[in-house]
Design a binder for these strands. Structure first.
Lengths: 201, 201
DNA sequence: GTCTATAGCCAGATAGAC
DNA sequence: GTCTATCTGGCTATAGAC
């Protein structure tokens, strides 16, 4: 399918676009990173925009299917919350530049984003909302709009990465301490969020 | 201090830089937005970078003091959480482009950010952490690292704005529904977060 | 202080040899 | 397919008239 040069280009483009964004990225820097000539970028991808599109599509395909699949598993809300938090944070640890990249480019180029994400939007998130409502009807969970809870859950997983520089300043964390904070967060956030929805007896 | 032209420039620059980011912004667009000549931008601010710095400084000064001041008020943790959520969401409603702008430029230019934010970092956030620990010692609150809770609180307030395009797609919200979602969120998130830290009897 | 015109540079894209 | 050299347009910044 794709030859070695094309792969090297995509890898380099991922690196540079995710770090600098579309506007800040330079074709020369991508070429240097890939250790090839700048003309090759245009030979394989014609324009900066097409190369960017390939990177954006791949970034979306990396992260969304993994997230979405959890919502449909047949486990309790509590287990789902814990599994979601652990999985989501692990994915971002493996791709720390992704959240900033995706959320920035999605705001900057919403049409492009909508186009590439459409394949990955399933009704799985709806299933989570329905499951929550059923459990709440039994009296086990507080009566909150599940959408409000879901957004809090996602935001709490992602925010530490988006806000990393600020958090390091405010909490006076060095890199090692920040890393420990994230590692501890998987379980701490699970406990917090499960407690958040549990009804007081 | 500042004359009318300088103010018009700053307002226009805020608009464009916050929407497009440093790299995506064009001096011509700022001039058009301010309805003045492009040369005037350089007359008043010399370079694009200096104009950007003025905007970034002002953005930081708009948002951080208001946030920080809540942490030191002498009210209960519950009241503090509720007040924090309401105040924070109201500030962002009034400045919806600010979170994306700040979090993106802070990642892109951490040194610049550190420089301008240093004036606004107080020990107030520490005070919140201490208050949490005292209350937890009494047995009223779950034993979580207060930093973990605090980051969840902030992330849950900010994330809906950073992730607006994605949320609209997944939840199938139109603009009006999104606005209602945010309005309802002030109270829903307060309740959720207070319940999150309350110990089950 | 405000404008027009333009200098000077830099980045994306292409031509053409090999 | 891969390279060097170059074109072209757009952007920041400045010169200079008023």
């Amino acid at each position: 399918m794709e030859n070695a040069t094309e792969l090297k280009i995509i890898e380099a483009a991922k690196e540079v676009f995710q770090k600098k964004g579309y506007d800040g990225a330079r074709m020369q820097e991508i070429a240097d990173e890939a250790k090839i000539n700048k003309a090759m970028l245009h030979y394989y991808f014609r324009t900066k925009e097409r190369l960017f599109d390939a990177v954006l599509q791949q970034a979306i395909a990396t992260i969304f299917p993994k997230i979405m699949s959890i919502a449909q598993e047949e486990i309790s809300i509590e287990d789902k919350i814990r599994k979601f938090v652990h999985t989501y944070i692990d994915i971002i640890i493996a791709n720390p530049a992704l959240p900033n990249f995706i959320f920035n480019e999605m705001t900057q180029r919403p049409d492009k984003f909508r186009k590439y994400i459409s394949h990955h939007i399933s009704s799985n998130s709806k299933m989570f909302m329905e499951q929550y409502k059923r459990e709440a009807a039994k009296g086990n969970l507080i009566e909150i709009e599940p959408e409000q809870f879901f957004i809090s859950l996602v935001g709490s997983c992602i925010f530490p990465f988006i806000g990393k520089p600020l958090i390091k300043i405010i909490m006076k964390f060095d890199d090692k301490e920040f890393q420990n904070f994230i590692e501890a967060r998987k379980e701490a956030l699970s406990v917090l969020m499960i407690n958040a929805v549990k009804k007081k007896k």
